[in-house]
């Protein structure tokens, strides 16, 4: 009995360390997820803005003067060129958004598995403690 009670604390300590590291990993994943959400929100807003711009550009007649703000100066741009640029930008951001979706899904899967393993660990710990 004495030997088992001496053994148990060591096992419990080990488990606690393990649990701690797992919890850290989980919180890191959660941080990543929230970061992903932030960035995605920004991208979504940008897509919306670019779509608005594209709509306005489509409405301009061919002779209209279009400028692009580059740094501190306004640079005159061809309308067709501006349209192409905006379209390309929208495509790029949409692709980026899709990529982020996939990443988010990955992260969530990881999060769930981490949660499960933590719960299992906790149960094991409880069992050991109950025995001791």
């Amino acid at each position: 009995m004495a030997s088992s009670s001496a053994l148990a604390p060591a096992a419990v300590r080990e488990m606690q360390r393990d649990l701690e590291s797992q919890a850290n990993a989980l919180s890191k994943i959660q941080k990543d997820i929230s970061k992903n959400h932030e960035v995605r929100k920004q991208f979504t807003i940008q897509v919306g803005e670019n779509e608005l711009v594209l709509k306005e550009l489509e409405l301009l007649n061919d002779g209209a003067n279009v400028y692009k703000l580059i740094g501190p100066v306004l640079v005159k741009q061809d309308l067709a060129e501006a349209k192409a640029n905006v379209k390309k930008r929208i495509e790029y951001i949409s692709a980026e958004l899709k990529r982020m979706d996939r990443a988010l899904k990955d992260l969530e899967d990881k999060q769930n598995s981490k949660k499960e393993s933590i719960i299992r660990l906790q149960q094991k710990m409880q069992a050991v403690q109950a025995k001791a």
Partner: peptide, 20 residues
């Protein structure tokens, strides 16, 4: 000179601007 968003500007008349 109307800001359309994302750094793009366009020369517009007052009437066109109100439409935008």
């Amino acid at each position: 000179l109307v800001l359309l968003g994302d750094g793009y500007y366009a020369d517009r008349s007052a009437k066109q601007t109100t439409e935008i």
